[in-house]
Amino acid sequence: MAMLTVENLEASYGAVRALHGISIEVAEGELVALLGVNGVGKSTTLKSIMGVLRPVKGTITFEGQEITNRSPEKIVKRGISLVPEGREIFGTLTVEENLRLGAYVGFKRDRYKADLEEMFELFPILKDRFHQAGGLLSGGEQQMLAIARALMGHPKLIMLDEPSLGLSPAMTDQIFRLIVTLKERGSTILLVEQNAERALEIVDRAYLLANGQIEHAGTAEEIKRKVDVASVYFGDQTDADSCEVSL
């Protein structure tokens, strides 16, 4: 029984269809990646799961209960957390306040203190920056804050949207190591990445998206064998010819 099941998801922006029936599954404890070049609908999928976008068709089930068309706040309450693309840190709020809002769902004072300590252990930099405005942090620090903020709500499923985007290679390494750590700690993770090569090194399974559809699905090994990863990474010639929707 999968934790998250997405069936036949279709979504569109106005008249532009972005997803043409996507089905994915994530089981408890799994680290699954959603791969593909820019604009194939990876973020749209996450936003639809999260209730930020309303799908045209399809069902989304989480822990056996349908959550299609629920509001984002309700879905967060169910235990899904999204680390959005571009970090989306509250720039005018301090690091502390960002984390406090992350703990909004099911807030318990005693647990909150312990959680903070845990975050400081995972991300020591956040302790130093605790009272600074989120907007003053560097890109990598913001990404850590965004992940910490999501963890503060004790999600059952974490969805990471392009966590390595715009980061230095060293920082990218750090983020990928962190994702592995999170998995080892027992988190269930759905990772969206353009950097297919790197993602395939750490994930259990992966889905490969092209033009709003799933082209390949399988374990990391299978995907690596089936697909010329470099072509995915850089964008396949034949794919580039077809009309792509830029999101």
């Binding site: 979504a11 569109s12 922006y13 106005g14 008249a15 269809r17 976008l53 309303r54 799908p55 045209v56």
Partner: peptide, 9 residues
């Protein structure tokens, strides 16, 4: 028919 705007947010 063109599908209507779906973005609820």
């Amino acid at each position: 028919d063109v599908p209507a705007e779906v973005d609820g947010l």
